[in-house]
Simulated assay, not measured.
Amino acid sequence: MPVISDKGRQMPESPIRKLVPYAEEAKKNGRKVYHLNIGQPDIKTPKVALDAVKNNNLEILEYARSEGSEQYREKIAAYYNSKGMDVSGKDIIVTTGGSEALLFALGTVADYGDEIIIPEPFYANYNGFATASGVKVVPVVSSIENNFALPPIEAFEKLISPKTRAILICNPGNPTGYLYSEEEIRKLADLVKKHNLFLLADEVYREFAYDDVEHYSIMREEGIEEHAIMIDSVSKRYSMCGARIGCLVSRNREVITTVLKFAQARLSSPTYAQIASEAALETPQSYFDEVSKEYVSRRNLLVSELEKIDGVRVAKPKGAFYCIAELPVKNTDDFARWLLESFEVNNETVMVAPAAGFYSTPGMGTNQVRIAYVLKKEDLITAVNILKEALKVYPDN
């Protein structure tokens, strides 16, 4: 039998998607499943984006430019400038989702065997992207005790080696919902300048910043123009996960030139999706105000209800639409599977994402879950009640 590559064997399973077969089986057996496991917003996509595709009269669906259309990139740049970032269209490469932007970034800044430092827990696919790129993830642990704030800079500095090429953050964070402050970003900026590293920031949840706290982008920080690489996407901002359009932004010309070569190798991002994404930039601010208000309400409700359950500890998120909850169980992988296979309340159950998959340090997060509050409030109440009842009878407690 032909042999599968080591890289293929080492690719991690998604902690978000690996339980899908169990959920599908539960549904086949007639049970309703409340999905708290995946960041698929239930907010409607802006009509202006959908109409741009519906009303388009293209006669030939041609390739787009590898870097994205000039018109679209200029409009993205205008959006960034409205957020206080000095960015032009030439600083942007349009990608097939933020995922491709991350892959291109790792391919640009690191060679096989090089290292990137990431505060954990982190978006699970960072492990997959690193494995696919032959790059080693070096985790620096953040803690639920302080809401997953940025670890001390000294903790980062201890991990820097001759193979270190970059620090990667997600701001606001998936899976923690933590929003880095301007002071924390500035500390990271000073660190990458001191050690001549890249600072990669996944900022796809930028619009989801709560409690009157403003998101501070690395692209606003002066003096790190050659170090800063920002990852972005339309998926969450406009509830357009299926469009698969993102971008990579940097004022480092060598970075952009190199990323473009990766983009040329895959030809181009989808034309219709770029049309929809360009139109989405016309979405009025009122849309984001309403969405933010809704998510704050959901967050407050979810955290409040979770805190009522004995033995549960939850970090209060400042952004995005996730939180990490610590449960009184030994292994949330087993618990999540048990919920789908063996438990129900009124023929209903819940699906959560075990948090161990958001860590790269073995043994971390085994009693934690990530919960996405992307359901309407009455469904969140029902889902948390099911979780509460499940914890009362779970046999491994």
Score class of each variant (00 low, 15 high):
E67M: 13
V20S: 08
S99L: 13
V345A: 10
M11L: 15
Y394E: 09
P2A: 14
E184M: 04
I245P: 03
F129M: 13
R298Y: 02
V384A: 08
M11G: 00
E290V: 09
D334V: 15
N37W: 04
S133K: 14
E183G: 08
E278Q: 12
D396I: 08
H195Y: 10
G365E: 05
D202C: 09
G223P: 05
V140D: 04
F321E: 09
A23T: 10
T131E: 06
I324T: 11
S161M: 11
K54W: 02
D114W: 00
E154A: 05
I60G: 01
Y178T: 11
A124M: 01
K75Y: 04
L106F: 01
S297Y: 14
S181D: 10
E389Q: 15
P270T: 01
E207F: 12
L391I: 09
A105S: 14
P121G: 08
Y79C: 03
I43Q: 13
F321D: 11
V138S: 07
T349E: 12
A315Q: 01
M230G: 02
E254Y: 09
K18H: 07
I229C: 03
A273G: 08
F335Y: 04
W338Y: 15
E74H: 12
G97E: 06
N56I: 08
G89K: 09
M240K: 13
V249H: 01
Y79F: 10
S143Y: 15
E70C: 03
E389S: 13
A273E: 14
P162E: 07
V109T: 04
D212P: 01
A23L: 11
A390F: 05
E307L: 11
A77L: 08
A280C: 03
D51P: 00
G223L: 05
I229M: 07
L102T: 06
K32T: 03
V303M: 12
F148D: 00
V249Q: 03
E305Q: 15
A101P: 06
V94D: 05
L260I: 11
